[in-house]
Amino acid sequence: MKNMEDIKSKIAKRKIFNNIFAIIGLLSTMVGLALLVTLFIDLAIDGTPRLSYKFFTSFPSRFPDEAGILSAWVGTCLVMLVTASAAIPIGIGAGIYLEEYARKNWFTSIIEININNLAGVPSIIYGLLALGLFVYFFNFGESILTAGLALALLILPMIIMAVREAIRAIPNSIREASYALGSTKWQTVRNHIIPYSTGGILTGIIIGLSRAIGETAPIITVGALTFIAFLPPSPVSGEFPFINFKWLLAPFTVMPIQMFSWVSRPQQGFHLNAAAAGMILLVMTLAMNAIAIYLRYKFRKKVKW
């Protein structure tokens, strides 16, 4: 009988260990959340006092109290415009080709393996690519165009993967029904595949762009200046032809670069500015990701094949 007691106590012990692990597991998942919250509170304590209308409408300055992020947020918007207009059409096109058109052969598998590898290449390598290719080979200089294209190349693999995943979720019966009614391949893609995968594609695009907004390393490598006290020429003007593209080749700075340059200074005043800029960046990227996660959740719930 003693043996039986022994076994019982052993089982009880194991159950306790099991429960302890469940608690450790839950706590571990909280580490990330705790970090996010601490990060946000830390930035908010330092940065909130600096947030004012003036902060958004002033250029950087030698005096921390007068410095602002005007050139940085304008630069970020323009760079994102270039990135989005390059990466979105190419990414969607490539994704559609690989899922709907590509035959299973060596060429397709090379493209697939290649995209997987590109997704793992460190971002600073894209910066070096852009430096060699866009700055010196194509002579775009250290401009908005160069930075936008560098970030486009960086997020392209992410967008392609998201598009493919979204398209893959569409059952074959939809395609077959469309073909049975006599549609061509492109008609099927345009009228069925793209509309049904919009949710997933949109999610991928938003996450990709949010990554591009926060990306610093490749932009430093292509030579963004940290001190820009002017705006690029306006893309829209009152005179004919109303739209111009001179801004593409203008020197620029972006939000993460501005923050980096403030962090690197020894004076405390600039650290407060960095915290304020960081808070804006953090809120922007987290909001974009929250929207993306929400969209994915909503579309996943809505669509039942």
Binding site: L39, I207, L281
Partner: peptide
């Protein structure tokens, strides 16, 4: 996922 989304420059500051 949000943890991955935080810009690395912000992590650097932190």
């Amino acid at each position: 996922e949000l943890l991955v989304a935080v810009p690395t420059v912000v992590y650097g500051y932190f």
